[in-house]
Amino acid sequence: NQASVVANQLIPINTALTLVMMRSEVVTPVGIPAKDIPRLVSMQVNRAVPLGTTLMPDMVKGYA
């Protein structure tokens, strides 16, 4: 199973992502692939993302 990107903490709306905010985990449904973590750094979330939430492409500005 492919690992997805999961929030390692509460990420407030419009926050630029950093490595410490994200972890990889095998979850259902599948979200953004963990291999894309380096690409996500500095991108902003367009909503508040609670701890443990799988990041989906529509949550990150400029990803999709």
Score class of each variant (00 low, 15 high):
34 A>L: 04
53 T>G: 15
44 Q>M: 14
47 R>H: 10
2 Q>C: 04
1 N>W: 15
43 M>Q: 07
17 L>R: 00
10 L>I: 13
49 V>W: 02
61 K>E: 13
23 R>Y: 06
30 V>H: 15
63 Y>G: 04
43 M>E: 09
45 V>M: 06
56 M>E: 14
36 D>N: 06
40 L>H: 00
23 R>M: 07
4 S>E: 01
33 P>L: 13
55 L>F: 08
32 I>T: 00
15 T>W: 05
7 A>L: 04
28 T>D: 13
54 T>I: 10
23 R>W: 03
61 K>G: 08
25 E>Y: 05
18 T>K: 08
25 E>W: 07
64 A>I: 08
62 G>F: 09
59 M>H: 07
1 N>F: 11
59 M>T: 07
14 N>K: 09
46 N>E: 11
27 V>I: 10
30 V>T: 15
63 Y>D: 04
51 L>S: 10
25 E>Q: 15
47 R>Y: 08
3 A>D: 08
6 V>L: 05
59 M>L: 05
54 T>K: 04
38 P>R: 05
30 V>M: 10
7 A>Y: 02
38 P>D: 10
48 A>T: 13
48 A>M: 14
11 I>Q: 01
46 N>S: 14
17 L>T: 00
4 S>I: 01
49 V>R: 03
10 L>Q: 11
51 L>D: 13
18 T>D: 07
5 V>H: 00
6 V>T: 06
4 S>C: 03
62 G>N: 13
49 V>G: 00
17 L>W: 01
57 P>Q: 15
44 Q>H: 11
11 I>V: 10
1 N>K: 11
59 M>Y: 11
19 L>M: 08
50 P>F: 09
55 L>W: 00
37 I>A: 07
43 M>D: 04
60 V>E: 00
19 L>K: 12
32 I>M: 03
35 K>L: 09
30 V>P: 13
10 L>D: 15
58 D>R: 05
28 T>H: 15
48 A>D: 12
42 S>M: 10
11 I>D: 00
26 V>M: 15
31 G>F: 01
52 G>T: 03
17 L>P: 02
32 I>Y: 02
58 D>Q: 10
9 Q>E: 15
54 T>M: 04
58 D>W: 07
38 P>F: 10
56 M>P: 01
9 Q>T: 14
14 N>V: 03
20 V>R: 09
19 L>I: 07
25 E>C: 04
61 K>W: 15
61 K>C: 04
14 N>S: 07
27 V>A: 06
5 V>I: 10
45 V>H: 01
42 S>D: 10
51 L>K: 11
40 L>A: 00
17 L>S: 01
4 S>M: 02
46 N>P: 03
31 G>C: 03
21 M>A: 05
7 A>F: 02
8 N>L: 04
45 V>K: 00
33 P>R: 06
51 L>T: 10
46 N>R: 09
16 A>S: 11
53 T>E: 10
48 A>Y: 11
6 V>C: 03
46 N>D: 11
15 T>C: 04
40 L>M: 08
63 Y>I: 04
31 G>A: 03
39 R>W: 08
30 V>K: 11
57 P>R: 06
37 I>N: 01
2 Q>F: 13
60 V>A: 02
2 Q>K: 11
7 A>S: 11
46 N>C: 05
64 A>W: 06
3 A>L: 14
26 V>C: 03
39 R>V: 07
2 Q>Y: 12
30 V>I: 13
6 V>W: 02
59 M>R: 03
39 R>G: 09
37 I>H: 03
57 P>S: 14
34 A>N: 09
5 V>G: 02
7 A>K: 01
22 M>V: 11
37 I>M: 10
18 T>W: 03
15 T>P: 00
8 N>R: 12
17 L>F: 02
61 K>Y: 14
60 V>F: 06
24 S>V: 12
45 V>N: 03
22 M>T: 02
40 L>P: 01
13 I>W: 08
64 A>H: 12
41 V>M: 13
59 M>E: 03
46 N>T: 10
57 P>N: 15
5 V>L: 03
64 A>S: 11
18 T>A: 11
54 T>N: 02
14 N>C: 04
53 T>D: 13
40 L>C: 03
20 V>T: 14
12 P>M: 11
18 T>M: 06
42 S>K: 10
39 R>N: 09
21 M>I: 03
26 V>F: 08
50 P>Y: 10
58 D>E: 13
20 V>P: 14
2 Q>S: 10
8 N>Q: 11
11 I>E: 00
13 I>L: 12
50 P>A: 10
24 S>I: 14
44 Q>W: 07
52 G>R: 05
15 T>G: 07
14 N>F: 09
1 N>Q: 11
2 Q>R: 08
50 P>R: 12
20 V>Q: 11
54 T>D: 01
20 V>W: 08
5 V>W: 01
11 I>P: 02
36 D>S: 09
30 V>D: 09
1 N>V: 11
3 A>P: 14
8 N>Y: 03
36 D>R: 04
57 P>D: 06
2 Q>N: 05
28 T>M: 13
40 L>G: 01
50 P>M: 07
22 M>R: 00
18 T>L: 08
36 D>V: 08
8 N>F: 05
18 T>R: 10
52 G>S: 07
56 M>G: 05
52 G>I: 02
54 T>Y: 02
51 L>C: 04
53 T>A: 10
13 I>D: 13
11 I>T: 02
3 A>C: 04
6 V>D: 00
42 S>I: 03
4 S>L: 02
9 Q>G: 07
